[in-house]
Amino acid sequence: DAAEQLTPVLLDGPREESLQLVSELKDSSCSCAVDVSTVWWEAAGCRELRVVTASESAVSLWEPLAPDCWGKVYTWHLREIPVIQIISLPDTCNLVCVALGELEIGEIRLLLYSCETDSFKHSVVKTGNIKAVVGLKDWRLVSSSRTMQEQQVEMVSLSETGGSKDGQTLMPPEETVTAFAEVEGMREALVGTTAGNSVVVWNLKTGQLLRKMHVGYSYPASICHRAYSDSGLLFVVLSHPLAKESESCGSPAFRVVAFNPLTGRSAGVMFSCLPPGHAGRQYLEGDVWDTAGAAVLTSGAVAVWDLLRGWCTAVLPPGPAGHWALARWATGGAGLLAGHRDGTVHLYRY
């Protein structure tokens, strides 16, 4: 109820100039782009941010050749199972993680460069009917998978050679886990959202399921993107791809919600709603970095929000190349990557 009373504010309408186009890269061999991301890469003693693009059958690594020019370094060909998404691993280097599958993830692979053999290679780290996956700091990967009878939630530690080391089974909630987010600054705390629209909290060290807290029926299919603890409260950034439009708050794409983990009670902190002219249908996919949210809207535009103020700060309208299909924040908040299905990616400074 408290959340419903908050009124979002648009700061004189969204300003496109808060996004500055830095460079464009075009994968001419790409028939249908499925994801884009960035990765830290170290070669010849030089550590730099590289762009990773994924189509259904190939994942390519791009290096900066000049301030506004990118060149393809290497392409991993993955022809057996389609690539679905690139999984970010927060503090790794020379490592790309991808999810492959048909309608849902069936396999997670690591793509890497081996110094020992001076070659690029890939290896399987997880198979199954995987519903959700997240990369955590310290080379850890958490995934939820389902069999006919039960749900498994598991954390594995990744090795620099592309394998998996230690594992920890986490106690599964009754409902299917739809997304995970690490609790920033708390190495052993993890949150997840469920198909029943709850936020759950785990202890990664012991595997304990600590708390299940309901998000509310107004916001079905909520997805968690980010979590942090402050002053005894757990703040979770949620996106709401299917939230209904209401008179009081428009169409909320993102919400910041404060949970009291001790009591399970919650209160909305801020709404970030679809900008005027884009309301009605919801958004296709979103990404969060720090206090910035970005999403591809069904109108074909990309919208950017300041999530703590609830302001839409920028809108990229669909361009001559058509609708935007992808919006991802670069590692370390280095900018926004916006992509078209034809393999064109624009890198913006924000």
Partner: peptide
């Protein structure tokens, strides 16, 4: 521990819940 609209809160909520939750 202090009282808010969301009930009593604790800076050590993670440790407290870990001590209470089933192993």
């Amino acid at each position: 521990c202090s009282e808010t609209d969301l009930g009593p809160i604790s800076l050590n909520w993670f440790e407290e819940l870990s001590a209470e939750a089933p192993p």
